[in-house]
Design a protein around this nucleic acid. Structure first.
Lengths: 256, 256
DNA sequence: CCAAAAGTGTTTAAAATACACCCATGC
DNA sequence: GCATGGGTGTATTTTAAACACTTTTGG
């Protein structure tokens, strides 16, 4: 199917597949070279950037829609995602954006479910940066990682959504374990600490950090140490998946 | 307008006024005679009970929709409400419920936006029990308070929504001040403590409770004491509205 | 005057924070 | 052998929890 035809089909018949007036936007966080990254899409023609988003199939749980979107944009599966907020300002003018998009594509339509007002549910995901193959969707020209400190101009209220997502992630850090999908399978304590410091955007005491993390029991220390490093070699750790999953659900309660 | 006509209008033309596929359900908590209450509606004909709910006007913020629903059911205004979760199981069969309702009313319709699948956003509110005049909506035969420990059978997933709302309220208690809308303007420390104990469903140490609450600074002690009580008269307190509002937004962080 | 409820402490335990010392490795 | 980063331990401060005594009031 040609691109124009695909778009036209989506605008004229999408409401037969998807729920109306509701979209899902995903804030996909990654971690690479000591920097927190977010995956963004560049809207075709417009040039502005956007959060990876999509719609809920008529017979699909919203959580599954979010996972499907993640899978489609990154190829990554089986990631813990969670909704954190619904954005519903009546002036988030998706209508304007979608009409402009159609005009740019060269498709002419008077009516479309895509011109209705949308509210959107924000979902966060934490993924392994190295496992991601970014794939733009049909509305987008590019799909790229951005450092959290140098976010480009974004469409609609997406900058606001991203800000809320980051605040939510920072808050969650006190109650939920973080790192399983963000770090390689084996990692050192300094690496884990760097992750926490990057997300919280502050430095932490090396020794107190270690004590607290270890006391949660979500880590297993391996006998192996990192090779080929100057200075003393740090141990490798793995997450204890069973306890990690348990802590994800029940929380673990410490402050950093 | 006759009742049947009103219903028919809603089912045939409601989608011109409201967003499709999204509803809002409110969990309205009250406090009376040392018991935590929830306001429920009895669905006409069905007999089962339901959370007060409604739809989002096409040009309305979802938060305002929730406030409008609260106002319509209780007459109460200017209450802090907040969304806590979106419920989106594809098998929450509003279609079945709504078709049955129409059948019972005696209205015959093949098509309606009300037969679409709905996701619903849960909102919690804490209101002054004594100021509420419960008013059923057009789908309901009755509107009543229920003790949180004796909830009747409910439609759809409403029992689950209520359960999540209560858990959310208990969690929030550690970070947000509670009581402004649940207690009279002037109240005693034992009354406030009883409120916390009721919500958390556990007893608290009288002296430690007082110290922590006072240390947040959200209270102002009056010179007045309660009259006509046996034993030592407790002081009256008021909330310091400015600090209370501030704590609502920024959190206050203590454990009980 | 006494029982019951409320006000105001203090003592004790736990947890968070700050800080000090030793160890291993590559240059 | 020394500078650098990492492992481990301890003192200090802060905060939470447990507990005791005094005050007031109606009956």
């Amino acid at each position: 199917m040609s691109f124009e035809k695909e778009i036209k089909e989506h605008f004229t018949k999408g409401h037969e597949k998807f729920l109306r007036s509701v979209s899902v936007d995903c804030i996909i966080f990654g971690f690479h070279e000591a920097e927190l990254k977010v995956l963004l899409l560049q809207a075709k023609y417009a040039g502005l950037w956007a959060l990876p988003g999509g719609f809920i199939l008529k017979d699909e749980h919203m959580d599954d829609a979010a996972k499907r979107i993640l899978q489609e944009r990154t190829g990554v599966n089986d990631i813990y995602m969670q909704q954190f907020h619904v954005f519903s300002q009546p002036d988030r003018s998706t209508k304007k954006v979608n009409k402009q998009f159609l005009k740019n594509v060269g498709v002419d339509l008077e009516e479309s479910w895509m011109f209705d007002r949308f509210i959107t549910v924000g979902y966060t995901a934490l993924v392994d940066f190295t496992k991601v193959q970014p794939v733009p969707d049909s509305f987008s020209a590019a799909c790229n990682w951005f450092n959290i400190n140098s976010i480009p101009e974004m469409i609609l209220d997406h900058a606001n959504i991203l800000e809320k997502a980051l605040a939510n992630l920072q808050m969650q850090l006190n109650y939920h374990p973080v790192g399983y999908n963000l770090l390689p399978e084996k990692f050192t304590m300094p690496e884990l600490q760097k992750l926490y410091e990057t997300i919280l955007d502050k430095t932490l005491d090396r020794r107190n950090f270690q004590r607290k993390i270890v006391s949660t029991g979500i880590l297993k220390r391996l006998d192996e140490t990192k090779k080929g490093v100057a200075h003393k070699a740090p141990y490798y750790y793995k997450f204890d998946l069973r306890k990690y999953q348990k802590a994800l659900k029940s929380g673990m309660g410490f402050e950093l």
